[in-house]
């Protein structure tokens, strides 16, 4: 990992986990050997998907490394950010394709620290990805009419 990322690596646990998930390369040692599990006569390797083929190296131009908006909650991924807003993507647990949520910069601190409020904002404003390509009739049938009118943007007035 490039040295300039060290301070954030130390204080931002979510970002640390993200780096590890994207670039962490699995190796096996004497202390931590590769294991196999046999189930019904079939042998399964104990490995993390794709982790052996990752580079194990965080590139110097890693996106958002010096963000002003750290500690992105684990269930969200950052799509873009500027001085005014942070655009996030996430997955629901109901097998939908997920959704979009834009957080104004002034609300970011509350968004990352107040879990209850964050959930309220998600239910109130998050916009389903399906709205980008499915008909209103399909959306209403599957998710209900109110999903049609969600903007995907938390207004600053929620401060």
């Amino acid at each position: 990992m490039p040295a300039q990322f060290w301070p954030r690596f130390v204080f931002d646990e979510e970002w640390r986990n993200e780096l590890f998930a994207i670039y962490g390369k699995t190796v096996y040692t004497e202390k931590y050997p590769k294991k196999t599990v046999t189930l019904g006569g079939r042998v399964f390797n104990d490995k993390v998907q794709d982790s052996e083929s990752r580079t194990g190296i965080v590139p110097e131009d890693f996106k958002y490394a010096f963000t002003k908006f750290p500690d992105c909650p684990r269930d969200y991924s950052k799509h873009s950010e500027n001085d005014k807003e942070i655009k996030l993507g996430f997955y629901y647990l109901d097998l939908s394709d997920g959704g979009h949520l834009t957080v104004p910069a002034v609300l970011w601190d509350r968004f990352v620290t107040d879990k209850k409020w964050r959930s309220e904002m998600l239910l109130k404003y998050a916009r389903l990805v399906e709205l980008d390509y499915k008909s209103p009739e399909e959306i209403i049938k599957r998710f209900g009419e109110k999903e049609l009118y969600k903007t995907g943007i938390i207004p600053e007035s929620e401060y």
Binding site: M1, P2, A3, V10, F11, R16, Y32
Partner: peptide
């Protein structure tokens, strides 16, 4: 003396230079 302080407890510093840090994180026990 270590250059990089505050290493998270789940990581171990394997090698460090003024440009980069090489880290190891053990798999969680199963």
């Amino acid at each position: 003396m270590k250059k990089y302080r505050g290493c998270p407890e789940e990581y171990e510093v394997l090698k460090e230079t003024h440009l980069s840090i090489e880290l190891f994180r053990a798999a969680p026990p199963k």
